[in-house]
Structures are given as structure tokens and as C-alpha cells.
Amino acid sequence: MVLAALLCMGAAADPADRLRDPGQEARARAIFQEVRCLVCQNESIDDSEATLARDLRQIVREQVARGQSDDQIKRFLVDRYGEFVLLRPRLNLGNAVLWGAPLLVALFGLLLWFGRLRAVAENAPLSEAEAAALARLAESGPQAQAMPTHDP
């Protein structure tokens, strides 16, 4: 971590490398933030001062200047360095759990909540017939047979 921190000093802002067109430069910077510096520990090439990060920035800037789309540039990087280079994992079968699990946890939680509420519904106010039955039982005194309970 410490080594990575040392290498990473907001390096992408170096004025020597910037593209002329501010629009293109902004696009390149956005891509930098999604590309991992492979030799650093856990940093994007936007932050890293490592030589490799500099090379990667060079590649991305060149491709942006040539008019390649974001997807084309990322595909190029993945072909060359593997999926490891992407800080935003792809949406594929291998990453299904990664992207899907939080949603599943939320859905499962909501399901449990609804389950709990159903128990509440069973404790809803008495229907008219039930109220009448209760009144009859109350009149006939405590020796009457036990009334149906609604405990959960």
C-alpha cells in the first residue's frame, strides 16, 4: 500500500503529456480512471507515476486522438493485458455473483420483510363475524370453550 501510495501522485495531470483538445483529454482521463496500473497495488493509471502507467496513458491518449471509441480502447487493453486491467469488472458469467449478489441480498431481505408482514396480516383486526363471536363468548362467561387464537 505504502509503495503504491508513493508511486501515485496524481500523475496523469502532468502537463507534458496532455492532449491538445480538452474534450479528448477529458475522455482520456475518464478512461484512465477505469484502467488499473498493473504493477501498482490497487491504483488506476490516472493516479500512478509508475513507468508502465505512463506507457498505458500514452496508448490510451493515442487511441483517443485516433478517434477510437471507449469500448474499442478497453477491448484493446484487455486483449493485451487480460481482464485484470479493468477496474470495472465486466458483466459476464464469471462475475455474475459479484454483480448479482447485492441485488439478491436486497431482494431476499425484502422477501423476509414481506414474510414478516404476512404474519402481521394474520393479526389484522377481527372481521365482523369474529367480533360477534367474541361478544357472544364474552357474554357466556369464562367457562365457555376457548376461542380460536390468532397468535403467530
Binding site: S44, L87, R88
Partner: peptide, 8 residues
């Protein structure tokens, strides 16, 4: 090997 970074 994959990476999970801030965009995720």
C-alpha cells in the same frame, strides 16, 4: 485475475 475498483 480480475480487478474490482472504484467504478464497481
Amino acid at each position: 485475475a480480475i480487478s474490482v475498483g472504484p467504478p464497481y
